[in-house]
Design a protein around this nucleic acid. Structure first.
Length: 583
RNA sequence: GGGGACGUAGAACAGUCUGGAGUGUUCGCUGGCCUGUCAAGCCGGAGGUCGCGGGUUCAAAUCCCGUCGUUCCCGCCA
């Protein structure tokens, strides 16, 4: 046995007892006649004391040496207790110190308070993982997944694995492709989600399925997006929306209990997509703070201000938010206007409420007294407040204000958890004049008649879970009737032949007594990220990739041998070949 | 595909705007001292392709152009 106890377990050991511990040297302090070092293992830290004359090895220890210590547990002398540490009232008087494995000089210190460039951390991720913050994140992740499994196992769910080498479908996100050697020129795709397979499991009579599934989307990175990520994927037969929401809500509450140690007793609020957009300008609203969007259209319907007039007569709207007291300057106004433009707005109107109550704004001179008063009243404006107004098509106006709301009014309370269901999503959305599905094409419409007659207004049985303004995941009641499924493809402009070619196998499966079913998937990485107060998903992924898809430690992705390429029947382009030679 | 920020010693930075010797700070590393520290302390020392390439200049970390890398955002992410 290499060790008898972990560091923090020593609190429960009788004084005078002989123990053996093993771990890493956190810090070493040599005082000449007496020397200390802090030994860290996965449980915590314990101080080891020795007389360097007796144990000269203690002066050889460097940070992150892996060591084993035999010693005796003893109370620290009066006045030397360290109240900041779990084991601060005891220490180990060493009787033997063995270096199990020395360490090179470190690229960075293994301490939370040290701020290190992320690339350097990723190049030595194994060292980064020794830091308490990262160790805690890994632990939180493990507790989250075990809470998920515990909860769903108790509910009688079956954990089923679906394949990760599947067929590519051009819809949605770009697929990660894997070339086939046995069938040269053909490709597998890595799943963006187990969507169709879990529906097949429902057809297969599983009734209650879940999987903690790795999913892949070959799209550009964000702080909350990686090429590969982990989802809790879940589906239930003979289920409607409420069964799904109740189950997922129970799972999320169990995760919060496991990771944060708190109990959420009240039900997650539900808000329709329309209301979310109107009030918060987002389909994933952060409801930890107000600053809601106000409709000013009627107030300024007769305004002399051309931009307002134009927006309204073009079927648009005029909306505003009161972002409260802000440092305000010309350059700030310009910055926000630019920001609004990058979000698709034509511009941005700003107003500052002067101490005497008048509005200071480039457009103030166009506003009548009743209009100015009406705006102030509608937006509950106080002296010093900054009002931002967008006049545009509805979706643009609310989206722009929603984004500015987040940038100017973000809360700082990291403890609060604002869960939310967003329901009644539109079934389709228009993109460059073309109708496309807003969730995925297997989502059930609320009404088949409406879908057929007024597709642009049709609602879907899709729903999202949102936490603190982050979309955790989404789900829907699925289409279980092959005829409805075909109609959806029709509306999407996918002709019968194409639908048959891409999804024929699935449409056929629907024809054998498919139970009504519904499901959900949420991102485990994102949930853990928020519960751990991390700003980036990379902090809760042990070995993430950088924004260009590179692993700085292994260098992946890398060039492969010509032989490997020819085995696959693949040639790389001259441009890529040039890059290959350059590197 | 587009926009912004950043890149200086092993790490984190200052210096860059307004060009003048690789100048400096903290941590780490290293030699020494030190019997109660715990981010120990004190004295000494080493350590630099200022990301890379080009240009302007008597002179470039500093100005200009390009490029690579990292990051945030827009597009994209059913």
């Amino acid at each position: 046995m290499i060790r008898t106890h972990r560091a923090t377990e020593l609190n429960n050991v009788a004084l005078g007892e002989a123990v053996t511990v093993a771990g890493w040297v956190q810090r070493q302090r040599d005082h000449g006649g007496v020397a200390f070092f802090d030994l860290r293992d996965s449980s915590g830290v314990i101080q080891v004391v020795a007389d360097p004359d007796e144990f000269p090895v203690i002066t050889e220890l460097k940070m992150e040496y892996c060591v084993r210590v035999n010693g005796v547990i003893r109370e620290r002398p009066e006045g030397t207790v360290n109240a900041d540490r779990d084991t601060g009232s005891i220490e180990i008087g060493a009787t033997e110190i063995e270096i199990l494995s020395p360490a090179d000089v470190l690229p960075f210190l293994i301490e939370d308070r040290v701020d290190v460039d992320e690339k350097v951390r990723l190049q030595h991720r194994y060292l980064d993982l020794r830091r308490p913050r990262m160790a805690a994140n890994l632990k939180a992740r493990s507790m989250a997944t075990s809470a998920i499994r515990r909860t769903l196992d108790e509910l009688g769910f079956l954990e089923v694995e679906t394949p990760t080498l599947i067929n590519s479908t051009p819809e949605g996100a770009r697929d990660m492709l894997v070339p086939s050697r046995l069938r040269q020129g053909e490709f597998y795709a890595l799943p963006q989600s187990p969507q169709l397979f879990k529906q097949l499991l429902m057809i297969g009579g599983v009734e209650r399925y879940y999987q903690i599934a790795r999913c892949y989307r070959d799209e550009d990175f964000r702080s909350d997006r990686q090429l590969e990520f982990t989802q809790l994927d879940l589906e239930g037969s003979f289920w409607g929306r409420d069964e799904v929401l109740d189950t997922i809500e129970g799972v999320l509450k169990a995760v919060v209990r496991a990771v944060r140690g708190i109990e959420i007793t009240e039900a997650f609020p539900r808000i329709t997509w329309q209301e979310a957009m109107d009030r918060f300008g987002s389909d994933k609203p952060d409801t930890r703070f107000g600053t809601e969007i106000v409709d000013l259209s009627e107030l300024v319907a007769q305004s002399e201000f051309g931009v307002f007039q134009k927006a309204i007569s073009a079927g648009g709207t005029v909306r505003g938010i009161n972002v409260g007291a802000q440092e305000w300057s010309r350059s700030r106004a310009d910055n926000l206007t630019d920001r609004a433009k990058t979000l698709g707005a034509g511009g941005l109107v700003w107003m500052v409420v002067e101490p005497e109550g008048t509005l200071r704004s480039p457009v103030a001179k166009f506003l009548s007294e009743p209009e100015a008063e009406g705006i102030k009243e509608a937006m509950a404006a106080k002296p010093g407040d900054v009002l931002l107004i967008s006049a545009d098509q509805w979706k643009t106006a609310v989206t722009v204000l929603g984004a500015l709301r987040l940038e100017l009014g973000r809360p700082v309370d990291h403890e609060e958890l604002a869960f939310l269901w967003v329901v009644d999503f539109p079934l389709f959305e228009e993109e460059d004049g073309k109708i496309t599905f807003s969730h995925h094409p297997f989502t059930s419409p609320v009404s088949i008649d409406q879908m057929r007659d007024e597709p642009e207004k049709a609602l879907s049985m899709a729903y999202d879970a949102v936490l603190n303004g982050v979309e955790l995941g989404s789900g829907s009641v699925r289409i279980h009737d092959p005829e409805t499924q075909s109609q959806v493809f029709d509306i999407l402009g996918i002709d019968r032949e194409t639908a048959q070619r891409r999804f024929g196998w699935f449409l056929q499966a629907l024809r054998y007594g498919t139970p009504p079913h519904a499901g959900f998937a949420f991102g485990v990485d994102r949930v853990v990220m928020i519960l751990q107060n991390e700003q980036s998903i990379r902090e809760v992924i042990p070995f993430p990739k950088t924004q260009t898809g590179v692993d700085p430690m292994t260098g992946a992705p890398t060039w492969v041998d010509d032989q490997q390429l020819s085995d696959l029947g693949i040639a790389i382009t001259p441009e890529a070949e040039q890059r290959r030679e350059d590197t």
